[in-house]
Amino acid sequence: MSATTLSVRNLTKTIKRHKIIKGISFDLKEGEVFGFLGPNGAGKTTTIRMLVGLIRPTSGTIEICGYDVKKNFTKAMEKLGCIVENPELYPYLSGRENLLHFARMLPSIDAKRIAEVVEMVKLTERIDDKVKTYSLGMRQRLGIAQALLNRPKVLVLDEPTNGLDPAGIREMRVFIRELAENEGLSVLVSSHLLSEIQLLCDRVAIITKGNIITVDTVESLLSSQEQAIWQLEPSVKGKEILESLTEVTTLDDGCIVTVYDSFQIPKWNAALVHAGVQVLQLNRKTPVLEDLFLQLTDTGGAHIE
């Protein structure tokens, strides 16, 4: 079991008697990428801003590497790197000046470390240009460089792929995975893009209306929801038989859906064959996180991109 780097306990936030965050708890471990998934307005950003000290929690505790954010702010922040929403750096300064600016706010960061992070995010050639001439992808990379300056143990990225093109998203994904695997960073990534979380994260917390509904690894979340799709002939009789054994739903094209249970499936199959129903096709379908997400948050598709 690797060490816990970020620990959140019973976090709440009340704004004008309106409870926005209703007591959430979770832990981040060394070297893992943790996804924070929820529809817009679920409380992702509020939670993240509490983690990084921008918003005061109404109650609850946040500890980064054992340091309480409220009581020991500077110690906790030394272990943290973050980008909240877009990396809003100073456009009228050059990339290097921006890094220098933030390095001055950290204990003992020298020019060598600045060169190091610039190398890491591959900005060496353009680092002395003004940030206003940078593309969005470059700004994002400079933002990451800024977040890595102090060799953090925890990296918090709020919507890191917002506004990036597919190549940029891919690049970012590879980079984040590398950081977690090679440097042992814990990375907290929030997103409303499900495909991204699915590809990037080890574990996922699904948050809606200020509550975390579930925290689990991506695989186990998905496998618990695997489905079997049957194409039967005659389908009415087949459906009757399956109905007597388990819960079924019928799709538009007449296919029948049941849960996928590797232990039960052969038995059901035998029952069908025994009753003279032909099994034309049997497919195992892993749902995409999106279906699961909609199921869990019950918001419908309106808020999901």
Partner: peptide
């Protein structure tokens, strides 16, 4: 928006 970076330093 740079205030978010400024206030999350140690």
């Amino acid at each position: 928006g740079s205030v978010k970076l400024l206030l999350t330093r140690p």
